[in-house]
Design a protein around this nucleic acid. Sequence first.
DNA 1: TACAGAAATGACAACGTTGTCAACAGGAGT
DNA 2: ACTCCTGTTGACAACGTTGTCATTTCTGTA
Lengths: 342, 342
Amino acid sequence: MRIATIKDVARRAQVSLKTVSRVVNDEPSVRQETRARVLKAIEELRYRPNASARSLRGATAHTIALVYDNPNPHYIISVQHGVLAICGEAGFGLQIHPCNSKSPTLADDLTALAQRWRLAGLVLAPPMSENTELLRALTANAIPLVRIISAASDPGDGYPCVYVDDRDAAYAITEHLAQLGHTRIGFLWGGKQHRSSPERFKGYEDALRDYGIGIDKKLIVAGDYSFDDGFRGARRLFRLKDRPSAIFGSNDEIAAGVLAAARAAGMNVPYDLSIAGFEDSPISRQSWPALTTARQDTEAIANHAARLLIAQIRGNADAVGNEGFRPELVVRGSTAPPRPRN
Amino acid sequence: MRIATIKDVARRAQVSLKTVSRVVNDEPSVRQETRARVLKAIEELRYRPNASARSLRGATAHTIALVYDNPNPHYIISVQHGVLAICGEAGFGLQIHPCNSKSPTLADDLTALAQRWRLAGLVLAPPMSENTELLRALTANAIPLVRIISAASDPGDGYPCVYVDDRDAAYAITEHLAQLGHTRIGFLWGGKQHRSSPERFKGYEDALRDYGIGIDKKLIVAGDYSFDDGFRGARRLFRLKDRPSAIFGSNDEIAAGVLAAARAAGMNVPYDLSIAGFEDSPISRQSWPALTTARQDTEAIANHAARLLIAQIRGNADAVGNEGFRPELVVRGSTAPPRPRN
DNA sequence: TACAGAAATGACAACGTTGTCAACAGGAGT
DNA sequence: ACTCCTGTTGACAACGTTGTCATTTCTGTA
């Protein structure tokens, strides 16, 4: 059972190839009657335009790639689905491309990828989206792109982006802890190669300052966005003479690690220790108690990124602009006022 | 900066198009010297074969799709990465295609997808892989496919597959609980549309029978593969007069839900209640205590599925056969002997 | 030295689509 | 009746690659 081509449709509808093409692409200048005849033939033959032929004819394929290097499955799946939803609407295909953000050949690899598949553009997730050198290389090769980045405002550097105000949300979380009465608030850093890490730290710092709480470097621990680092970091904080009464983990995985460490140390969360995370990933809801965190609507963010990219590809970039998102504080059971000091 | 085509390379290397094509595709019958000249030109021009043109010329694109409808991000990411690794080696592209397994137009949608993009084949993850009607429809349209399914042995129904022996692993888990001395073991079902659910239940049943433990229907609760169902199911079991001393959740999410419910009820896991999950997903390691579970090497499974599909596409299906995987018991802190009855 | 056979190379068509341009019909305006 | 326009349609080339087949060049042997 051969797949029908435009030729078969044309023959069946008694029109030329071009007319079928016009109908398929909703071009004007086709009589109502002719259009109907063609549509009927398309239906009968189950004709589907061949994407390869289309992209060969045009400048690029109707396919974009999503590029990421992120260990958090929930985040990635959300981004994928957000981008896919828009691709579906726009008739674009999606290639996913996990990669190593530290690879020295990254720019070359991505350029090769884009050229090989004639990709129409790239969506860059963090931390790739924050690699200026990479952005330059891709732009030099005329590869359209859009970034998902962590920033308080539009960086206005010419590269299209969707920006997420991590600082603001981290401020809200720290503020929440301060308002509960905590003054010894630990902070566990995320991975240094993500711009979100310093942003979140900045929110923490700013809130402490605004609430008149001094910054104690001993309460601040480096790490990566991982459960294990949360566990280890928490243990380190527990060993301090003047322990924190609350710990803010830079993401939910870290916070879950803190929770596990607290449990292992026989603490009762939230009464002995308040814990907050970031991201509202499933783990924050599936812990006990559930974690106070910041909800970021990753799918909406990805939606916008995809729309931005596709608008750019289609040349109507003015229709869709850069946009900011602001994660929102979600208070759950893992935070409470500190125990009165004895 | 136009992207170089085979024509540019041919001109630069002073050979015909066809010779370049031969070099690119590693065909024989090219003199060493000529080959070197062509390779040099390719290098200099940064030539990359145009995938669209290739697939237009050939019968199909060098792209396969991964089709799934599964709420578990960790599982999906693992499958994606497993498939991608093989695609990379083989020079294939991957399209991901999440979809609704209950959609009545699923078969049509997938056929349309495959034809539109000239896909070379499909990898079907559960539960799509267990929909016989779908398999028939795809096969009728000559779309190569491979399934990842839950089965104790090769079903030998003609559709290529990678099968995972969930029954055996569930048996091992139940056996582990029985050997610890548990006789009241609760079971929380996974989603009915997944074949793995009855398989896992069968393992539970078989083990109980072999260890002379009667089956108590009150200890068996229906549900889906979700944290919330685990939570609810556990609460139902806690209300029984003769409570279980151990609960086997059909996957780690369910088990994590049980853990949360136990914590909410003030129980001390594992001493008041043993909990076992299935899958070895991150949540099983990131709980406290960590969950006893069954480890399935999803990436290896996906690797094999992709290899199987690509072998089939290339017509050397004999080189790679169906294969079975057997998840392996992982004992962690969430299981212990029951408290002596008082 | 000539010649068969093998090896290397090239010319050309074809894959399915769409952009360009020409052709044609029918109606409005002179 | 004639021109001019507008709306509809079709012929043809081109996109970049590879399969087919013909041609050229080389190799070893008679």
